[in-house]
């Protein structure tokens, strides 16, 4: 890259950041001069201060860890069940006949609609949140695993059989890698649902976690903390997305459309 190109690149970066920076500045000024009520929309600087406060007293980390652990537990349980059903129904006809139509029916129930039922069953215990997340992620993982396995090239499976691969090897080396792109799409979709479900569940009933932190702050009219909670949720979602992208890049490096452009094969 020559000097002019670098300069042009810097300029385009600067330009794309100009508007957000301007909005933040205008917001700060408007809040400080009382143009907008700080109680409704506090200044960016007071959100930063709230962040710093909660970071120092350890509560931010504690709530974030609790929320993350709930999310991951639900993902692990729901994902494992969805994956197992997807695999079994994908490779074994009788299982598909028995389970698939039932799963398709259950899929149509919006999982947030069962919150009252979940509260009746579990109260506000940890298991309620984990259960809701698990139900939420189960279906996208199931559908995409099932679909991925059913669409693996039959020719490849036949070839593997001709070369004497054992059924387990055919599954591990042909069917699973062939279904992986679809499974990862399901995972990404499931991660979105995971955070969304958790936000709702924690907001409605919890005594810890980011959702609790924001609802608690609302009662004390600490709007800056509420906004902080929203930002933390957004960052967690972004982080999850980033990790799946890395995972995709690593697992699908063979795939022409996932290979970074221009990279040597």
């Amino acid at each position: 890259m020559n000097g002019a190109a670098i300069l042009a690149r810097l300029r385009s970066i600067a330009l794309s950041w100009a508007l957000p920076v301007f909005i933040l500045l205008a917001w700060e000024v408007a809040a400080k001069t009382g143009l907008i009520t700080a109680r409704l929309l506090p200044a960016p600087s007071s959100i930063a201060a709230a962040f710093w406060r909660h970071l120092l007293d350890g509560s931010l980390l504690e709530h974030t860890l609790i929320s993350t652990s709930r999310a991951l537990k639900g993902l692990l349980i729901g994902g494992a069940i969805g994956f197992a059903f997807g695999v079994i129904n994908g490779i074994w006809r009788p299982a598909e006949t028995i389970f698939d139509s039932t799963l398709q029916m259950l899929r149509n129930v919006p999982h947030l609609a069962i919150i009252p039922l979940v509260i009746l069953w579990f109260g506000i215990a940890e298991s309620a949140k984990v259960f809701l997340v698990a139900i939420g992620v189960l279906f996208p993982i199931y559908l995409n695993t099932y679909h991925g396995i059913r669409t693996v090239d039959r020719g490849l499976i036949e070839m593997a059989r001709v070369y004497g691969l054992s059924p387990l090897d055919v599954f591990l080396r042909v069917i699973l890698p062939g279904a992986l792109p679809s499974i990862l799409v399901g995972l990404r979709y499931a991660l979105g649902i995971m955070w969304l479900t958790l936000i709702v569940a924690e907001t409605i009933s919890a005594s810890s976690g980011i959702g609790y932190m924001t609802m608690n702050a609302r009662e004390f009219l600490q709007t800056d903390v509420v906004l902080l909670g929203i930002i933390v949720y957004a960052l967690l979602g972004k982080l999850a997305d980033f990790v799946t992208r890395l995972l995709e890049r690593w697992a699908l490096s063979w795939h022409p459309s996932y290979r970074p452009a221009g990279a040597a094969a």
Binding site: D153, G155, E158, R173, V174, G178, L180, W254
Partner: peptide, 13 residues
Amino acid sequence: RLLFQDSRLLPWQ
């Protein structure tokens, strides 16, 4: 052994 029109190579290996 068989050779097909499509080479049937595993794309992920």
